[in-house]
Nucleic acid binder design. Structure first.
Lengths: 154, 154
DNA sequence: TAAGATTGTGGGTAGTTGTGGGTAACTTCC
DNA sequence: GGAAGTTACCCACAACTACCCACAATCTTA
């Protein structure tokens, strides 16, 4: 059973092979709508991880970027940093995508990786780094966190 | 007789089998509206238990998460912590859902489990842990109860 | 109260999924 | 143009999962 199309939840311990391939969990692939043509866009995450978007979701982001005026310096920087590391990757018959050497290095990926569903995208983590990030996030502003939690009834 | 749709009350002693399956009480299943497609979303509870949401209830949460921009660190953390442990589970012909190894471990579940109706969701407990939690909660701040009393008429 | 239906629990099996490696096509660089 | 390295596609296999059937205990109904 999958949730809504192009929606990802759950955490999976998978492995990155010597050719730089990672499996996309079957549940995630089943959730992909056909217009994605089995393709994801992989890019640099804002934390120390790889972000994986369904193709059509990425196209959406692209069109938003297009609307940012390059007159503003912050816009130029933002667009550049977002577009720069993005590349499409179609999964093979076994359901694996191939990561770029840059992204593997950036996220510090080794053999064991953690794949995390983030609703509209997927994150690929080195498990150790995710642990560290979790610990740092404990120091996050609790008031702001509570504010979020207040508006989303769980 | 069931109450309103997608509403759960009562406590049941059931068992978790060697394949990680637990039965959802028939009364709870009967209360599920058809648009849930016989599916629950299981996730990590805030106490030491498993939370089980009807699919449509979860979709609501999910659409809120979708609207949080990942530019903000606090949003990323919130989405990750919420989505990470959640996975859909459709019950089989016998009315059982399958729990993930992570959740079984997190809630410390063994063969005997307690299933508790929590109105809009269901909790699955190790009976011993629920006892312990209850005892701790006896020491709850009476002022907090007074605060609650302002918001709910019982 | 007795027959029938429903419910909770256990286990078998066929199909799916994750992972490793092989090979041919393609690209790059001397 | 040819060698070396890289990429894309294919096959194989072990582990796991979803689905099915069976049965005993409980509840319902006449």
């Amino acid at each position: 059973m999958t949730l809504t199309n192009n929606t990802f939840t759950g955490e999976y311990a998978y492995s990155l092979d010597s050719k730089g391939r990672v499996n996309i969990p079957a549940k995630f692939r089943q959730s992909l709508s056909d217009d994605n043509e089995g393709t994801f866009v992989i890019t640099r995450g804002m934390d120390s991880c790889v972000w994986v978007y369904p193709l059509i979701q990425w196209k959406d982001i692209e069109s938003n970027l297009r609307n940012l005026s390059s007159l503003s310096k912050i816009n130029r920087t933002f667009v550049r940093n977002t577009a720069r590391y993005a590349s499409p990757s179609t999964y093979d018959k076994q359901g694996r995508i191939t990561l770029t050497p840059y992204l593997i290095d950036y996220a510090g990926l080794d053999k064991d990786v953690l794949i995390v569903g983030m609703v509209n995208k997927i994150e690929i983590w080195n498990p150790t780094r995710l642990d560290e990030t979790d610990k740092q996030n404990l120091e996050i502003d609790p008031a702001a966190y509570d504010e979020l939690a207040k508006n989303i009834i769980i």
